[in-house]
Write a protein that binds this DNA or RNA. Structure first.
Length: 824
DNA sequence: GAAGTGGATATACC
DNA sequence: ACTGGTATATCCACTTC
């Protein structure tokens, strides 16, 4: 039996004590296929270099005798092979020890207390990861496969109740190339629950919406006359759950997706199903939904990949998004230009029929948005999975450190490397206590309005340093060696080998691929190429942090410290060269330099950049980010020094680039942010402050006359931990407590919205009330505090901008504020 | 009782 | 606890004179 096949999800099962792999995927006729494959699990024993052959033979005989019978599972060492492998870049004789069941590999490894054995490795990788590495059946790639149709009786009748076109025992698989357009088009169902009580399982499920290519449905038990046609009314909540299961099973999609569905929708469904003693058997083998533990729950369905889009968006998109929160509403608005429907959610007992009809629409829209977001994210999900070579289920939930590690693990074979082990608890807590090492260099700017500016920046600066200077766990030397690179950090010297290590080499490849895909995308734009280029970009960006991350297998803070140390040296040298060549570096942060062109032309600057590049070693590269016609740098709130990480630029297409200013900070009120951005724009466009100042005066007048809508004055601050864990009584915690009192749901991660109202004992005025005592929730009636908004929001946001022009709003700040304000 | 200081907290930059 | 360090700024509690 031959067919084309694309693997989507991987699972495993035990039969007669042995491990078997189950792969769910599609054939070229878009039918679901299940492949069964055997797998011989093994781990490595790294031997000391000088162990003699005779001793090795004896050792093998010893180890071969090991048998275990734990948890009713008889396991033994099946066979042993001798290989020469690298461990952290050094070659060793290694024993490849095959065991009956991979779950016992760790226990058997623990029995190997022989002095000839230097390290035991490879027993802590997941079975799926090992399978993908060894059999090279990579996720989301096409294969021509041959196999035998599984007999109904085999593996205890496994093929019997599996809802797939075919179950095949895999014999051969050969990778084939397919054009992207004739490639795999996944079937997706998006779903969303509406409930009465947000606490998992504590309320009733009111309705569930489902959206697929040819499916738009809201299931409910609420009988409403003239309900929209997409509504299907069931007898009660238990029928509703059963109908949901029925539809999903009938549709049998590749992906079932929700938004925060790991944390809400799926656990809720499970809890309510349990309440009614219904089996939530969504799996294509009728298995129930399982939740794997971890920091967050992950809901897994056999044969249908459950994707919580929020989790993928957190790792893959959040750094690019401008949205203030990652709520479905904001993310959909930014990525799709579509919003959730307006609907005020109330307890179901308080809803009138027309409210219900709107509620159904609202519920359907949530699934529609989720469905569209999935399609938008699909190229990225696909390319993440292909790049890291891990299933989409995992890649969509893992953070970037895990993704970097997946990439490493799956590419180790190219370097004949054995995987390093994961740090254990004790080691992790030790690592967490390490002192911080010094990071990036930031040049203090001189405040001012500048003209004719260029911005240079290093491409993938830190990764390119790691690759160029060979900084990693496998290349750091214990002591000084001939030709070794010496890096001095805090009077301590570290040495790195000149012989390239696998991590720097992989990184070099990642950077090169990123460059290549970026170029391919430019030449021939497609969502897939963009996603591919982006996956490699994110991988490069996260790789530096990976080496300094306590959970990393290839943890090496010395390499991280050396990376930043070298980065500081280089950027300072470049700054010096810039200043000596008739330019003036006015600002620099980490990998970028803003410089004044002075008398030089733009083309001269580009030639100068080429010169600088000629003297850069390895794959380090400096590029032109853009030319700007004006830029402004301001002082810190107090003192005359220039503030770092705060500037605004305007290029020759009149596009603004604003960094660090309150304009881009969500914890400042809308009025202050809009005013500041207006003023920055005015100044950068005109080159003077006059129109900006008159605009400011207008706004101040409006505030004093109470002409400002309180919605413009709402301050939003995120609640980052449970209220009880806060030591400080800040305004936003006070607001959160008020919300709890008023029975408004308060959750970690939520933006707390409030404004500052007039003091109650305003007239007496002597001992001023604290800010937190004047907090009112966003919908609470009251008068905003004119003094607060003037002196704590509006003026702080703009006074250091005007100070650049010697306009002294400072006197106002110095206590003469009240009097001075009268002048406006 | 005003002024200064430092801790806790949030958010941004790269 | 789930990449890293650098930096600004607010509010509030506390100390100091």
């Amino acid at each position: 039996m031959e067919t084309e096949f694309i693997p989507i999800d991987y699972d495993y099962f035990d039969f007669n004590g042995k491990n078997y792999i189950q792969i769910i995927g599609k054939n070229n006729n878009h039918k679901k296929i299940c492949l069964i494959d055997s797998y011989e699990p093994y781990f490595w024993a790294v031997l000391h270099k000088d162990v003699k052959q005779k001793t090795i033979d004896k050792l093998i005989k010893e180890i071969e005798k090991i048998q275990l019978d734990e948890k009713g599972r008889a396991t033994k060492v099946e066979k042993i092979e001798l290989h020469t492998k690298n461990y952290l870049g050094t070659s060793y004789p290694c024993l490849k020890i095959f065991v009956t069941n991979f779950k016992d590999a760790h226990a058997i490894a623990d029995k190997l207390g022989y002095k000839e054995i230097f390290k035991r490795r490879g027993y802590d990788l997941s079975l799926i990861t090992k399978y993908i590495i060894d059999k090279k059946l990579l996720p989301l790639n096409w294969y021509k496969i041959s196999g035998e149709i599984l007999d109904i009786s085999e593996f205890g009748g496994l093929a019997n109740n599996l809802d797939v076109e075919q179950v095949l025992k895999l014999e051969k698989a050969q990778k084939i190339e397919k054009l992207e357009k004739e490639a795999f088009n996944p079937k997706i169902i998006a779903y969303d629950l509406e409930v009465d009580n947000l606490e998992i399982g504590k309320g009733e499920i009111l309705m569930i919406s489902l959206v697929s290519e040819n499916l738009k449905k809201v299931l409910t038990w609420k009988k409403i006359q003239n309900a929209p046609e997409f509504v299907e009314t069931l007898k009660d909540e238990s029928q509703l759950i059963e109908r949901f299961i029925e539809i999903v099973k009938k549709e049998n999609p590749d992906f079932l997706t929700g938004y925060f569905s790991d944390g809400f929708d799926l656990p809720y469904l499970k809890a309510r199903a349990e309440f009614y003693k219904i089996k939530l058997n969504l799996g294509i083998d009728d298995s129930i939904v399982k939740f794997s533990r971890g920091r967050e729950l992950s809901g897994k369905i056999f044969g249908i990949v459950h994707i919580d889009l929020l989790r993928f968006i957190e790792t893959a998109y959040s750094q690019y998004l401008e949205s203030e929160t990652l709520s479905l509403n904001e993310v959909a608005n930014e990525l799709l230009g579509e919003k959730k429907l307006d609907f005020e959610i109330k307890h179901s007992t308080k809803l009138k029929p027309e409210n219900w009809r709107n509620y159904f629409e609202y519920n359907l829209q949530d699934s529609m948005l989720t469905y569209k977001l999935f399609q938008k994210a699909w190229p990225d999900l696909l390319e993440f999975s292909r790049t890291m070579q891990e299933p989409i289920f995992d890649v969509s939930r893992n953070g970037m450190s895990k993704n970097v590690e997946s990439y490493i693990i799956h590419n180790l074979e190219n370097y004949n490397e054995i995987a390093e082990k994961r740090p254990m608890h004790e080691e992790i807590s030790e690592r967490m206590q390490r002192e911080k090492y010094e990071g990036a260099f930031v040049l203090q700017p001189t405040p001012g309005l500048y003209e004719n500016i260029a911005m240079f920046d290093f491409t993938s600066y830190w990764p390119s340093i790691i690759a160029t200077f060979n900084l990693s766990k496998s290349t750091i030397l214990e002591k000084k060696q001939k030709n070794a690179l010496e890096v001095k950090i805090d009077e301590k010297k570290y040495y790195f080998s000149k012989k390239k290590g696998f991590f720097p080499l992989m990184l070099e490849e990642i950077i090169k691929k990123r460059k290549q895909f970026k170029q391919e995308y430019k030449d021939n734009p497609s969502p897939i190429l963009k996603a591919r280029s982006n996956a490699f970009k994110l991988l490069a960006n996260a790789s530096y942090g990976y080496q300094g991350f306590f959970g990393a297998r290839y943890y090496c803070p010395e390499a991280s410290a050396a990376t930043t140390s070298i980065s500081r040296d280089f950027i300072k040298k470049i700054i010096n060269k810039i200043n000596k060549a008739g330019y003036k570096a006015i600002y620099s942060d980490t990998d970028s330099i803003a410089l004044l062109l002075n008398k030089n032309s733009q083309s001269q600057a580009i030639r100068f950049l080429d010169e600088l590049n000629k003297n850069l070693p390895g794959i380090m590269e400096l590029e032109l980010e853009d030319f700007y016609k004006r830029g402004i740098w301001v002082t810190k709130r107090d003192g005359e020094f220039g503030a770092k990480k705060k500037y605004a630029l305007i290029n020759y297409e009149n596009k603004l680039k604003i960094r660090g200013f309150e304009t881009v900070r969500r914890d400042w009120c809308r009025l202050a942010r809009d005013l500041q951005s207006h003023i920055i724009k005015e100044i950068l466009t005109t080159g003077n402050h006059e129109s900006a100042l008159s605009y400011l005066k207008q706004i101040i007048k409006k505030i004093k006359n109470r002409e400002i809508d309180v919605r413009q004055l709402i301050i939003k601050t995120q609640l980052k931990k449970p209220i009880s864990e806060y030591k400080a009584n800040t305004p936003h915690i006070t607001a959160a407590r008020k919300m709890v009192e008023q029975e408004i749901p308060v959750d970690i991660g939520m933006l707390i919205e409030y404004y500052i109202a007039e003091s109650k004992n305003n007239a007496k005025g002597k001992s001023k009330e604290l800010v937190r005592d004047r907090v009112k929730l966003k919908d609470e009636p009251g008068n905003y505090d004119i003094e607060y908004y003037l002196n704590h929001q509006i003026l702080p946001a703009v006074e250091n901008i005007f100070r650049v022009f010697n306009i002294n709003l400072q006197e106002i700040a110095d206590g003469k504020r009240q009097k001075k304000l009268g002048e406006f």
